[in-house]
């Protein structure tokens, strides 16, 4: 079987998996709703309370799929551009930027979380990435090391700022503590509508860049001779990764691990070609996150575990499997 047809099989399999977990997500939850309760609702009728529950689960499932897809693809791009197997969206400052913005709004402007979090976290993430890119840019340098270091510096500084604020005023940070772990509990269609444009723009940009990212992986010189405008592609790649990760983080908080683990699993399955890695990471990331969210709702009834807590537990076995097969590659 050639690489392409194998990748197509993987893509179809991942899509089937996503469909299954999405359907389960509509039925499963901290309130036990059976097939006989949910089906009438989906058909447009049924009990009013169950209807509200199912509506919220539809929004939650859709948002979970978007967050997972966006984080996974963002991780693929960041690992590709930085040629760093430990790369993840946080490397560019997305996570700390969004968190610092939320903390600042909470501490100084009486912000209490909820639906408006999106409009605080998105610009925070964008500003942080701009700062990292500006600090990491060295004229004429072909290395991505300055970019990675700038990201690490900004993460350290903003991380310390966040810690200091939270320690100084623990009373006001209750909603932040929940947000910072990553949760889909408050998911609604407004949040989905708010972040979808950024996520879709990032996804389209990523797919358009796929072939160029393959060339960029061979080094700047070879990429240039293959007709790649290197600074343009690198900049656009960072923009795509930022849009994706910022949309996800704004919607659900900084969900860890998906952006790191899914790219490795995807590479183990379909190889190093970005033209396959990106579509497969969208679907697999979405499936992982929705599955983690379902697990979080089911294991701690009648409460629930936040999805950011569960992703690591659900994702770790897959990452370990990829490692043990010796197929973890950049």
């Amino acid at each position: 079987m050639t690489r392409g047809s194998r990748a197509l099989v993987v893509l179809l399999g991942a899509t089937a998996l996503l469909v299954v977990v999405a359907v389960v997500s509509l039925f499963a939850g901290s309130k036990d709703t059976g097939l006989t309760d949910v089906l009438p609702v989906l058909a447009g009728g049924g009990d009013e309370y169950v209807q509200a529950v199912v509506d919220s689960r539809v929004a939650r499932t859709a948002l979970g799929a978007l967050v997972g897809a966006a984080l996974a693809a963002s991780g693929v791009i960041v690992q590709g551009i930085t040629r760093n197997p430990l790369g993840e969206p946080g490397l560019l400052g997305v996570t700390v930027g969004a968190s610092a913005a939320v903390v600042t709004a909470t501490a100084f402007f009486g912000f209490t979380g909820g639906g408006a979090t999106v409009w605080v976290a998105l610009p925070g993430a964008a500003v942080a990435v701009l700062a990292v890119v500006t600090l990491g840019r060295r004229s004429g340098s072909e290395s991505v090391v300055p970019l990675v270091l700038a990201g690490a510096v900004l993460s350290a500084v903003l991380g310390a700022y966040i810690q200091a604020m939270v320690l100084a005023r623990p009373d006001v940070f209750d909603s932040y503590r929940h947000w910072v772990v990553g949760s889909l509990a408050g998911a609604d269609l407004q949040t989905l509508q708010a972040v979808a444009p950024a996520a879709i723009a990032g996804a389209v940009l990523a797919l358009v860049l796929a072939s160029s990212l393959d060339s960029l992986a061979l080094g700047d010189e070879l990429a240039t001779s293959l007709g790649v405008r290197v600074p343009l592609v690198r900049g656009a790649g960072i923009a795509a990764a930022t849009l994706l990760a910022a949309a996800a983080t704004a919607a659900a908080g900084p969900v860890a691990f998906v952006g790191l683990a899914v790219p490795h699993v995807v590479r183990a399955l379909v190889g190093t070609d970005h033209r396959w890695q990106l579509p497969v990471s969208f679907v697999l990331g979405a499936a992982l996150l929705v599955a983690a969210d379902v697990a979080g709702r089911v294991v701690a009834r009648p409460g629930e575990l936040m999805v950011g807590v569960v992703t690591a537990f659900v994702g770790a076995p897959f990452l370990l499997a990829a490692v043990r097969r010796g197929r973890v590659t950049t």
Binding site: A217, L218, E221, S225, T272, T329
Partner: peptide, 24 residues
């Protein structure tokens, strides 16, 4: 152009490498 010291993406297969020559 083939530079003296091109970057080898980890895990890249021969076919995937050669296919990248089609980028133009």
């Amino acid at each position: 152009f083939l530079p003296q010291d091109p970057v080898v993406p980890d895990g890249v297969t021969v076919r995937s490498l050669v296919a990248r020559g089609r980028h133009p």
